[in-house]
Design a protein around this nucleic acid. Structure first.
Lengths: 223, 223
DNA sequence: GCATACTGCATTGCATGCAAACATCCATGC
DNA sequence: GCATGGATGTTTGCATGCAATGCAGTATGC
C-alpha cells in the first residue's frame, strides 16, 4: 500500500484507448439498432470487422454487459431484448430518476439555469414550423439535459444517462404523430412552469407523468 | 446475422468463471474497506496474490469501474474515494430509487408479501435483546430486500443493488448508538404501517426520509 | 537552488496461442 | 420415428509475450 496522491476530482471512468473506441462503436450499433436484439456477438467476428484483436472486443463486451445492453447467454453474449414487461421496468426507473431530478432542480437550480431552460423551450416552439423530427429528438435531449444539469447531482446524471434507454426514444421518434408531438410540448411547458414556480413536488409529478406518457407511446408502437 | 433462439428469460449478466471469482473478491475487499480508498490497483500484483494471470484481473477492473467502485487514474486504477459531496449524491440516488420502490410496493405487493415483511420486522424486534450489531445489518438487509422484491421491478432492484453503496452502511453499522438503532427501528415500523395501509405516497415519503436519516448518520461519522 | 531534460523502470495496452467447454450434427439403438 | 450417445468444429477462458507509455529519479544547466 504505497502512499498515493489524492484524486478528489472526478475522473473519467475509462481512459481513451482502442478498447474504448471499440466499446463506443458497439454501443452505438446496438443503440441504433444496426445490431439487433437477440443477435449473437462473436468475439473473433467483431475483432476482424473492427480490425483489432479479440482482447479489446472482450473488454468492451464486459462494459456493455455492465450497461445492461448485452447479456451472457450460453457461452457468449447476445444483445438484450426488451419485452414489454422490461420496457415497463425501464420506464419506471426513468420515472424514479428523472422525476427526482426535476424535484431537485426545482429546489436548487440557479435562476439563470431556469431562464436558460425556458429559452431552450421557447426557441424550440419558435422553430417548430420546420417540424423536422431529427430536430425534435435533439430538442428533447437538450431540454432534459438542462434539467438534469440543474439538479446538481452528477451521480444521478450518470445513472440517468447510463441506462442507455434513450434508444427506445431514438427508434420511435420518427413515428410520433403530430398530436403526440403537441402533447409532448405541452408537457415541457407544464414542467417549465412548475420549475419556475419552484415547486418540487409538482415538478416531480409532472416529470413522472411525462415519462409514463412516453411509456404509453412506446407500448402502442410495439403492438 | 444468423437466426438465433430467443432469450426472453432473464439471464445472469456474467457466467461463473475465474474472472467472476476475482471480481467478487476484489469487490468484497473494496466494500469491506480492506482495500482502501485512493489505493492503487496493480494488475500484476493482484494477479500474483490471487494466483491467476493478469487477464481475469484486468476484466474485473472493468467491471468494478462499471460499478463505480474504482476509477481510472493516470495509467491504472484507484479505489474511488467518496467526498462528503459524493456521499450526498449517493444517498440522493438511493432516496430516489428506494423511495420509488416503496411506492410501487404499496401498490403492487401481494398481501402475503406484506405479511412476510411484517414478520421479518417483528421477529427482529423480538430478538433485539441480544442486540448483536452484525445481526442488525442482516436484518436491515432482509427488510429492504423484502420491499424491493415486493416492488416487482427487477431492473429497479438491480439498480438499487448495483450502486454498491451499501458498503457505507457496513462500515458504520458497528458504530451506531443505541438511540440511532431505536430510530431506525421506528422507521421500519412506520414504513410497514404505510405499506399495509397501501398508501404509495406516504410509503415513498417515509422510505426517502429514512434514507436521508442514514445520510445524516454517515456524515456525522466521517466528521 | 531551482528548473528542465534525460534515462531507466514499472505498468499497462494489445496481440496471440492453447486448451477446455459447449453446441451441432450424425450415427446408432430401441 | 424418436431418443440417446459420440465425434467434430466453433468459440470462449485464460495465460503470456512484447511493445509503448508515462513516471520517477537523477543529472545537468542556469
Amino acid at each position: 500500500m504505497p502512499p498515493l496522491r489524492r484524486t478528489n476530482q472526478r475522473v473519467a471512468e475509462a481512459p481513451s484507448n482502442r478498447t474504448t473506441e471499440v466499446y463506443e462503436q458497439l454501443r452505438q450499433a446496438i443503440v441504433e439498432g444496426s445490431i439487433r436484439p437477440n443477435e449473437r456477438l462473436i468475439e473473433s467476428d467483431l475483432a476482424e470487422r473492427l480490425d483489432v484483436s479479440r482482447t479489446p472486443v472482450r473488454e468492451s463486451m464486459l462494459r456493455l454487459a455492465g450497461d445492461g445492453l448485452i447479456v451472457s447467454y450460453r457461452r457468449g453474449w447476445v444483445v438484450r431484448e426488451h419485452s414489454a414487461e422490461e420496457i415497463r421496468e425501464v420506464f419506471e426507473v426513468r420515472a424514479a430518476l428523472e422525476g427526482f431530478a426535476a424535484g431537485l432542480a426545482a429546489q436548487r437550480a440557479p435562476d439563470a439555469a431556469l431562464k436558460a431552460l425556458e429559452a431552450i423551450h421557447q426557441s424550440y416552439i419558435d422553430s417548430i414550423q420546420g417540424s423536422s423530427r431529427g430536430h425534435l429528438v435533439a430538442h428533447n435531449d437538450a431540454f432534459h439535459e438542462a434539467i438534469i444539469a440543474a439538479a446538481r447531482n452528477q451521480l444521478l446524471a450518470e445513472q440517468i444517462h447510463r441506462n442507455g434507454q434513450y434508444y427506445f426514444i431514438h427508434r420511435i421518434a420518427g413515428f410520433l404523430s403530430d398530436e403526440e408531438v403537441h402533447t409532448s410540448i405541452e408537457g415541457h411547458e407544464e414542467l417549465v412552469r412548475a420549475l419556475t414556480a419552484r415547486d418540487p413536488v409538482l415538478s416531480e409529478q409532472v416529470a413522472r407523468d411525462r415519462v409514463f406518457d412516453g411509456l404509453e407511446k412506446v407500448l402502442n408502437r410495439i403492438r
